[in-house]
Amino acid sequence: MLNRPNKTTLGEIQNWLSTVITDPHGAGHALSESTIKPEQYIHSTEIDALSRLNVYAEAYFSRIVECLEADFKTTQQIVGDDAFRQLIADYLIEHPSRSANIGEVGRQLPKFILGHPYATEIPYLADVIAFEWAAVESFYSDSAPPFDFTILANFSESDWAEAQIKLQPSLRFYYAQWAIADMWNARHQPNEVFCETEAGILKSNNSIALWCVGGEMRARDLSRAEMAALNTLKNKGSLSSLSSLITAQPEVGEHLMLWFGEWTKLNLISGVELNRKL
């Protein structure tokens, strides 16, 4: 975009250094493979060139692993620290960071894991990784403050039919082949508690609601009926829009008040609005 005097020299230095410090086998390996001797580019008086380059090489990998550990905490718990680092090393070969924001670096991990041996060894791992990235996306979306439910005391019975239910904007639905929500909820628990939860994991197609309240992520397993009710509310908003669903699935009607109480308690509902002023 801009004119760049001395571009060749600066570009050559940057290409070389980038190659050396991101080599998956280490800076020493990169130097042994390169036709460029380090002293052609860098001063190495008193402290040798490899020691200097290693500072950057180690920081490159550590910084990205640290970020991905935060975003994929459950994954790390499942595979263990060493295997997690290996997974990330493998991942970065195919998907080096392309974004200015290090928070983006895990975006391709759900796709990458599908072709990785770990996904065969641990059949629920791909579900977990995709779910953890969905949690990152939910976190970085609009959120609403907790709703003041005392306002509902002024609602008449007829108000409820036309009331517009506002769900948390961060709400995402995730479809998993494994019941992973309990394991995800246990990710910050001591290892023995986590392992116990992991050992109890079942294969069962299920839906999970994922949302953010006050900067904290929450997840809840949903039955098909509850999922359908929430999805209808998310798309249409009014309680009256549930009537055809209740006709088709009577259990929705049976459980709706119970669910509503739980959605309220969990801050899944961010507001209830009427066309008239209260």
Binding site: P5, L10, Q14, N15, S18, T22, S97, A100
Partner: peptide, 29 residues
């Protein structure tokens, strides 16, 4: 500093060579 090249972000604050060409490059940007 520079933090990446060839659309590969290294997420580090990498040093620059201190010369006229680099000064021109940085001033413009």
């Amino acid at each position: 500093c520079w933090t990446g090249v060839n659309n590969h972000n290294l997420h580090d604050l990498l040093p620059l060579p201190y010369n006229r060409g680099t000064i021109d490059h940085l001033c413009e940007r």
